[in-house]
Design a protein around this nucleic acid. Sequence first.
DNA 1: CGCCGAGTTGAACTGAATCAAGAAACGTGG
DNA 2: CCACGTTTCTTGATTCAGTTCAACTCGGCG
Lengths: 202, 202
Amino acid sequence: MKELVTFESFLLKNSTFDEENLSIQLSLLSHKIKKQAIKKGDFIMKPGDNCSHSFFVESGLLRYYSMDDKGKEHILHFAPEGWILSDRDSIYFNIPTNYYMEALEDSTVILLENDFFTSLSTDVKLVSAFNERLLHNHIRHLQKRITQLLSATAEERYLDFVKLYPDIMLRVPQWMVASYLGIAPESLSRVRKDLANKWKAQ
Amino acid sequence: MKELVTFESFLLKNSTFDEENLSIQLSLLSHKIKKQAIKKGDFIMKPGDNCSHSFFVESGLLRYYSMDDKGKEHILHFAPEGWILSDRDSIYFNIPTNYYMEALEDSTVILLENDFFTSLSTDVKLVSAFNERLLHNHIRHLQKRITQLLSATAEERYLDFVKLYPDIMLRVPQWMVASYLGIAPESLSRVRKDLANKWKAQ
DNA sequence: CGCCGAGTTGAACTGAATCAAGAAACGTGG
DNA sequence: CCACGTTTCTTGATTCAGTTCAACTCGGCG
């Protein structure tokens, strides 16, 4: 079990909502905020579902992945505490999702209805600025991933991964990291062995 | 030279702006709307630039690419007429871009200042809805690309490419398509040869 | 005409996948 | 707390998709 990242601190960090007002609003809305405990191995979304909300991960760890026509899993990203998990595509265009969201540890998430943020503040500008920030963060992340997949070798990708998610290597089975990197589990094992040898040789 | 996609029709398709108002607003703003003609081979953005606007491609074709540390180009996407070209990352977080934007044909683009859309309509909700739509389209596109890079072979990627951009294969040198697909130009040549043979054999 | 960039083709090479087998770690029930 | 089966990880041998390098063709263009 890792530290608990409060939803409030997340909102403060990613928006310009006034601190006091936000606190008040959150307590007023407390009955509307639905928390959900998820056991390791459980799914909160599966292909075909029409995704109507996003999830804020308060504690634990989830993964977001798809399955290709050959039955192979591809992990798009991990969502540890403090991250938001959502299929923007499914929500926004109102189409069934192609992705799985699975808990890799016992976790608690906060359900975010689509209209949740608008009820947080009457200031439309603030709300849309906040939403925009989330979208831009998402885009940034995706774009980095593409550049990496286009140009980096298995080893480089692994090193980048460790930088991005320093602790996740310790929290999930290694084959999932391989799935994230888009390489075979055996290859990751070898990459790590080579790096260890290089390290010793120095 | 291909057809000209008007900026107005683009706006109408991607927003809920009222048709008449939009028309009026656009003519009122006509002095603020800057068009730019770009000759084939010219750049409208290079790494290090602080990108302060987006570009709507009215006619012609551009490419958006990066250069890795080994000097290899990677084309993130093409932007034919009717597309918007922007580095969201650079604009939003106000950091220098890592990308090139180059005209592959003589083109005309419309410069979109960051505050342009807000001046289009006083209705904040409409403007932010429009912006959101663009962002979601972008995310959708990026996510597809990642899934594809993770799971598809060179041949599958090429077939997907032809579906997405039916005519671009004819408008740009083949090695650029290879760069978009993340494969060597020789490989693309072979993929196409194999496909041609399969086709004949049927 | 001769040059040059683009595309093709062949041959050798290589990074990573696949297949297979064994070792280690893990969880569960007795 | 141990024993057992299951999953994960490692290692080796082999294969394969795609790269690299080099030679050659073709079409345009000064």
